[in-house]
Design a protein around this nucleic acid. Structure first.
Ligand SMILES: [Mn+2]
Ligand SMILES: [Mn+2]
Ligand SMILES: [Mn+2]
Ligand SMILES: [Mn+2]
Lengths: 225, 225
DNA sequence: ACATATTTTTAGATAAGACTAAAAAATATA
DNA sequence: TATATTTTTTAGTCTTATCTAAAAATATGT
């Protein structure tokens, strides 16, 4: 009888790994203590303590004052947490009738449940979704992401159009704002006018026309057509 | 990522409340420190500490050396944890293809997820089940249990029969043993012979006949016919 | 280059929840 | 009733994860 060694980490350790995972995307330097502290709404001194522990466990590379980087091992753990988070979000929306602005806080709890079988079966039950309700990709078991081509709505020019495929900000305020305007994933958006002085857009979606600020356009991902 | 959910009670507090809830069923005295310690696989001194805290929060009545009793408030919290535990067990078996001997440990984790909407929607999704996979009743939102008439198989006499409706021991060893013998909830069992000297039974289930020990018969609930 | 500002680390404290060992109270037994 | 045993509580320690305040290192600006 062979039993596989499954490393156990505390929820706190997992949250730090996930924060570092998100923060190191697209940057080549180490992730700073302050950046982690800000993301986790904690103090820099707490981060220093935890970062020493994670380094001890070979989950991250840490040298004093140099910031941190995930090791391959750390990446594996972090992406498995992200995978769980996003699969649970799909479950909540698809099966339990949650709206996309209600799922995040619950998923923050569910992502720490330890059971390989649970997450495998959930994946099967949901039909192997590749994206969560916010259009973010769900890592596979090996941590690989299916990268989808997407651009910010703000990069569209006048008379160009695209399909709404994701959000940059997934705060419930922003998501509820989008709901109010009838902007949901999958919908087509066409830019009818673009104001130079403030970057605001006049767009059409469904049969409706509306204007949206530059801030909105900077937080909405579309797939160009 | 930045939202900090402040739970009303910690997982540890909830586990103590649940343990007391189960231990005080059918007894009129306070639940002893040692009984709680044994149930939670911890030390009596730890129990004393926690019991003081729960008493402070008016979840239990505690007087030194007298054992503890849940207050109505404590009962409400405890039964809501049991409700969550059992609903999650149903979910795992009905939707995720877990077998009844695999669900308990995962449900021990899931029962501490804080989200009233989650548990309401889960209840709807599962079709308002009244029992968990082990035949145990699921408390409603107010903590009320639908009491079902049931007896131990060992109380059946020769030539009497009944429907298998629950287990007294839900350890995975016992449940796997039942699986191996083809004994699952809903099946009819008839007592063909009853040995006086050791209490063992010779029974029929489906088309098969088999003998089971008194220990088994003492851990299986049936509804008499 | 050097003073200033910012970032990061250290030192020490706190709180929750567990433990061990020993004291105190309750219970059982002779 | 006196003694022995068991149960429960207390006292003190440990670990994890936080915090504040202060020191040290790094980055910035003139
Ligand atoms: Mn989320
Ligand atoms: Mn998401
Ligand atoms: Mn259970
Ligand atoms: Mn059960």
């Amino acid at each position: 009888m062979s039993s596989k060694y499954v490393p156990m980490f505390t929820s706190s350790e997992e949250n730090y790994l996930k924060a570092i995972y998100h923060l190191e995307i697209g940057v080549d330097k180490g992730v700073s203590t302050n950046a982690i502290a800000e993301k986790l709404v904690t103090k820099a001194s707490s981060v220093t303590d935890m970062v020493k522990k994670l380094s001890e466990k070979e989950l991250i590379i840490y040298k004093k004052y140099q910031g941190v980087t995930l090791t391959n091992f750390g990446k594996k753990i972090a992406s498995s947490i992200v995978r769980k988070h996003r699969l649970w979000e799909v479950f909540l929306v698809e099966k339990l009738n949650f709206s996309w602005d209600e799922v995040h806080d619950v998923a923050e709890q569910l992502e720490h449940i330890k059971s390989p079988k649970l997450i495998n079966q959930l994946d099967i039950f949901l039909g192997f979704p590749s994206q969560d309700p916010h259009g973010d990709p769900i890592p596979d078991k090996d941590g690989n992401l299916k990268v989808v081509e997407k651009s910010l709505l703000s990069t569209l020019l006048k008379n160009e159009s695209g399909i709404c495929v994701g959000v940059n900000d997934s705060s419930s305020e922003f998501l509820q704002f989008l709901d109010k305007k009838g902007i949901t994933l999958g919908k087509q958006i066409k830019v009818l006018e673009k104001e130079n002085f403030d970057g605001s857009l006049f767009i059409s979606i469904d049969q409706k026309k509306l204007s949206i600020s530059n801030k909105i356009a900077n937080n909405l991902y579309i797939q160009k057509q």
